[in-house]
């Protein structure tokens, strides 16, 4: 059962399909914002399939093991994250105390693997991207963990299943002022975790030519793209789980509501990405450690006094 969960539903296979469709939705909405037509629905599947069939080039100064192992570990971690979030929404009973912390660690692994892989490539553009990704990781985790602490404090539990049960009994966390503030903070942190535009300094196509992914080609690049697509599916579901009452598969229209919430969050992320310029890395760090951390602390205090 565990193997089935990890490999088929709601793990690797399901997350792949859902993530690639989400990525397509993102590209289609982007195209509509530009007043273009945009790619057909199978576009992202074709992209990944093509990358899997291409040559993998090893740069001259690359450290072979780290360079080639990083995408695989990132993919495995992304599949693990999607499995956890899916299984706990399906069956809140098997959630154990502290799995929120485990989930938070697993979410950090793809970013860390990007840092490891691009540092192992041994070329200037990759190294610059690697150092920027490291700074960004340190920056966005601070407000993110404060908001998680707020959710844990309100629900008085450390398990994802417990948070879903708490919201089923007492109403969604987003229904309060502190919940809305926390949701905004996590939305922007997700933006940075995905490497989307206001915070895409590590990738920076126009100045670093791909940055952290610059030296990856073929199947290795495909694995990273796939891991990113899976995270693009996992993170909105995670936001629904901790703020918006979970997916609630049990009762009739629950899945429909979940899909609507999911599409709303994805489109919000895409619109933020399309209406903002790229921040420099120092501006991004200042933004996360300054404004967003203050906002997260305000949300926490409001939560403590019961708003």
């Amino acid at each position: 059962m565990v193997v089935f969960n990890y490999l088929v539903f709601p793990g690797f296979l399901f997350a792949t399909v859902a993530g690639l469709l989400t990525w397509w939705l993102d590209r289609k909405v982007t195209a509509r914002v530009h007043y273009r037509v945009g790619p057909p629905w199978f576009q992202t599947f074709a992209d990944v399939m093509k990358l899997m069939g291409k040559e993998v080039i090893l740069p001259e100064n690359a450290k072979r093991t780290g360079f080639l192992l990083a995408p695989i570990v990132a993919l495995a971690a992304a599949a693990m994250a999607s499995t956890m979030i899916g299984v706990y929404n399906w069956n809140t009973g098997i959630s154990f105390s502290g799995d929120l912390i485990v989930f938070w660690y697993i979410l950090a692994i793809p970013s860390i693997m990007l840092i490891v892989g691009s540092a192992a490539a041994g070329t200037p553009l990759s190294s610059v991207g690697s150092s920027r990704e490291m700074k960004l990781l340190l920056a966005y985790e601070v407000p993110f963990i404060i908001v998680l602490a707020m959710v844990i404090f309100q629900a008085q539990t450390l398990s994802l299943g417990g948070i879903i049960k708490y919201q089923a009994a007492h109403g969604s966390i987003i229904a309060s002022l502190s919940g809305v503030l926390g949701f905004i903070v996590v939305l922007l942190c997700v933006q940075a975790k995905m490497g989307f535009v206001p915070f895409d300094a590590p990738e920076a196509e126009t100045e670093l030519g791909g940055g952290i992914l610059y030296d990856y080609s073929g199947a290795a690049l495909g694995a990273f793209k796939l891991a990113k697509a899976m995270l693009f599916y996992t993170l909105p579901i995670f936001m629904i789980t901790i703020f918006w009452g979970g997916v609630q598969i049990g009762n009739g229209l629950g899945i429909l509501w979940a899909v609507l919430k999911y599409i709303l969050i994805v489109v919000l992320i895409t619109l933020i990405r399309n209406t903002n310029p790229r921040l420099r890395i120092d501006q991004a760090v200042k933004f996360f450690w300054g404004k967003l951390t203050i906002l997260a602390i305000i949300a926490f205090i409001l939560n403590v006094i019961g708003l």
Binding site: R36, P39, Q43, A46
Partner: peptide, 22 residues
Amino acid sequence: LTPRFDVERFGIVLVGSPRHAD
């Protein structure tokens, strides 16, 4: 790449690195 021709309809996009390119 602009709305009049929009080659992304056929999956053609510009990338920043020759290693990603076809």
